[in-house]
Simulated assay, not measured.
Amino acid sequence: MPRFPLIPTIVVLAAVATMIALGFWQLGRLEEKEALIGRYQAAANSSDEVAFPTEDKSDHNWFRRSRLTCGRVLELSTVAGTSAKGEKGLTVRAQCSEGAFGMPLVVDLGFSRDVKLPVWDGGEVTGVIAPGPRLIADPPQAGLAALAKPDPTDLPNNHLAYAVQWFIFAATALVIYVLALKRKQRGE
Results as ranks from 00 to 15, higher is better:
Leu36His: 07
Leu30Asp: 07
Ala51Leu: 10
Asn45Val: 01
Ile20His: 07
Val16Tyr: 04
Ala35Glu: 15
Ala44Cys: 07
Leu30Ala: 11
Leu22Gln: 05
Gly23Glu: 12
Ser46Leu: 02
Ile37Pro: 00
Ala51Gln: 07
Ala21His: 06
Met19Gly: 06
Glu32His: 09
Ala42Leu: 05
Arg39Gln: 04
Glu49Ala: 08
Gly38Trp: 03
Val50Leu: 00
Gln26Ile: 10
Gly38Val: 08
Tyr40Val: 01
Ser47His: 02
Phe24Val: 12
Ala43Ile: 00
Phe24Ala: 13
Leu22Asp: 04
Gly28Ser: 14
Leu27Met: 15
Ala17Leu: 11
Leu27Gln: 15
Ala15Tyr: 13
Ala35Gly: 11
Leu27Ala: 13
Val16Trp: 04
Ala43Tyr: 00
Val16Cys: 15
Arg39Leu: 10
Met19Asp: 05
Leu36Ser: 08
Glu34Asp: 12
Ala17Gly: 05
Ser46Cys: 03
Gln26Ala: 12
Ala17Gln: 15
Ala44Met: 03
Arg29Met: 14
Glu34Phe: 08
Ser47Asp: 02
Glu31Ser: 11
Asn45Ile: 01
Ala21Glu: 10
Gln26Cys: 11
Ser47Arg: 00
Ala15Cys: 15
Asn45Phe: 02
Ala35Trp: 11
Glu32Trp: 09
Leu36Asn: 07
Ala17Ile: 12
Ala51Met: 10
Gln41Val: 00
Gln41Asp: 01
Asn45Thr: 04
Gly28Leu: 04
Val16Arg: 07
